[in-house]
Design a binder for these strands. Structure first.
Lengths: 349, 349
DNA sequence: CTGAAAGCGCTTACAG
DNA sequence: CTGAAAGCGCTTACAG
């Protein structure tokens, strides 16, 4: 018997049968211990736990999956243009999944595709996914979420709005970040303020715009509709919007671009027009991409704690999947912060 | 029987038994068809294929994994600081894996950690990984690769050098990109040329430096050792190196930073010293990160076809795992290209 | 609170 | 070229 111990894990890995034999119990009892079934006699539990440790036993996830009719795979289904967002989220999820026995399977897709639903359904069914994490904009697709509900596939949605029950939701409160941006401009004396919106297909676009405009209003500032222009969260749309805003007879002295990509486009537009930042234009972005701290001037931007969002989402998912002790009272909300850099200065009236 | 067809896949999914029943063969024969065993009578094969289609049967990966003693999961084990690199590689891998029945499991780790080997071993064993893809710098860790070999876990390495047999290797030929950079500088008349190296722990650092210096030499240009400085592939190290180079009595008129992060650091240093780019300094980076096209001036940079590298790596892995028709003659090499932008100008002698 | 039997959906090893 | 039996390593459903 001790032979097995000495040989360590070099030999064929121990199975539930080996543990049962050594602990002098049935494999069913070992199974109960593995799955933390509470109704196991303490002494027996200890015997089993020791045997598990001595044999270096780790339950085979494939066998469990087959018997459970459900895998130990969590899917990250995304369609996000920002690599930094994806990787940070992914690493946050992995932080929380570490040691849980679950693995993360990534599944990028196209949120505009007509086959999106079939694609995700096939993925969920084939792998019998234990759960799915949905960042925006997929998290805002009610058809997709409905599909998961029908399939009884646990999920957690990440969005700027509380679109679902708390156990299935991480709310990012983007409006708070937009409010900080507005406050910043207002306090520094800016009055002619421009806004570059995101695409209406993202809920965050509305949320950010509303938070920004409402807060300016509290400071007695209204944004001229002509200075409230549409963008699509891309660099090019920011460039274009920047040119439109800066070509106006009375151009804004400060612009809030609702993501960093567009903010960089605005920066480029300003430069193409011979303006100097931040002297001629104050600028705030949203996302705090790595490049925000690399461009010149360094871009002031609103940062979402993306890694933490991933951790929260994964913890909630673990709870829903019944693998956690504290299923209920978990934090559901996260708040963005304004990261001050060099692209904002007081208005020189 | 047709009932099953009409109900589609809403009901409990069809199993190999259902297919066997409908095709009037044993389940073993169905198994042979699934696994493309050639020695199946053509008529029988057709019967089975039809039954599979009619029932919408898809083999259960968990059951196959258990019986095969090997999962259908491919691991991407990485420790790369660039989110864009990771996401592009990942999507390339997924391109090639699509429809193969394999899924991708991501496993970030710390290449400096003392527990790296145990960590990866545990991951590979637990999930009985079908294969692993290793980008740099992990691909250059011979201990890690040795471990995978011992475990008989198929792998593909991505590196700037051919460190392994072609079926297990995607070679990126970084020296070619560095050569292009050197050529560019030489042709534009630069003679006082600076170089910011990567850390010696990355093979690419040597490869890029050698390609660059050798090519300059062919043009009769030697780099003064004082202008050949060390960096560590980080922004900060680039900033620091930039200051050192630009503080020299005869500063370089052109600098090749061996990745974009450092190139941006050099840009920052130049600006802090009151220099104007590209007038006072020409600059080339490596990687072509998204921000290379977002900074001002747009950064000329060497681009590796990362997504394609992911595709190649995954195809090779599929071949090794015995899931491919053309196991041998596959492309193994990839070549970088110099993407011309605005950060390089002729030397004004 | 514990266990013997049957089963999850496949493949391996062996016959024929 | 095809198949019946046993098995992969677990869990479910049912007893006791």
């Amino acid at each position: 018997m001790t032979k097995d111990v000495d040989r360590g894990e070099i030999e064929k890995p121990a199975t539930i049968n080996d543990v049962a034999l050594r602990a002098q119990v049935s494999k069913k009892t070992v199974s109960r211990v593995i799955n933390r079934v509470p109704t196991v006699d303490e002494k027996i539990r200890d015997r089993v736990t020791n045997a598990i440790r001595e044999l270096g036993f780790r339950p085979n996830p494939q066998a469990r999956s087959l018997a459970f009719r459900r895998s130990f795979l969590v899917g990250l289904v995304y369609d996000n243009p920002s690599p930094a967002y994806v990787v940070n989220l992914l690493e946050g999820i992995l932080d929380a999944l570490a040691g849980s026995g679950f693995e993360l399977v990534v599944h990028p897709c196209d949120h505009q595709s007509t086959t999106l639903l079939d694609n995700v359904e096939e993925f969920v069914e084939r792998q019998r996914l234990a759960g799915v994490i949905l960042p925006p904009p997929l998290s805002e697709n009610e058809m997709l979420v409905g599909l998961l509900r029908v399939k009884a596939c646990p999920y957690v949605r990440i969005s700027s709005l509380a679109l679902d029950e708390p156990p299935a939701m991480v709310v990012t409160n983007d409006h708070l970040g937009a409010e900080e941006a507005a406050q910043q401009f207002a306090q520094l004396g800016h009055r002619r303020i421009g806004l570059v919106r995101g695409p209406p297909s993202f809920r965050s676009a509305d949320v950010r715009a509303k938070g920004f405009l409402d807060t300016l209003l509290k400071h007695g500032i209204t944004v001229d509709p002509a200075r409230d222009v549409a963008g699509s969260y891309t660099f090019e749309s920011g460039l274009d919007a920047g040119h439109r805003l800066l070509a106006m007879p009375a151009p804004p002295s400060a612009i809030f671009a609702m993501n960093d990509e567009m903010a960089l486009g605005v920066m480029q537009a300003a430069r193409e027009r011979g303006l100097e930042l931040p002297r001629d234009l104050s600028l705030i972005g949203f996302d705090d991409l790595p490049m925000a701290a690399r461009v010149w001037p360094n871009l002031t931007s609103v940062r979402l704690p993306i890694r933490e969002m991933g951790q929260l989402a994964a913890r909630k998912l673990l709870a829903t999947m019944g693998n956690q002790q504290s299923p209920d009272q978990q934090q559901s909300e996260v708040r963005p912060v304004l990261v001050m850099r060099d692209s904002v200065v007081p208005w020189e009236g």
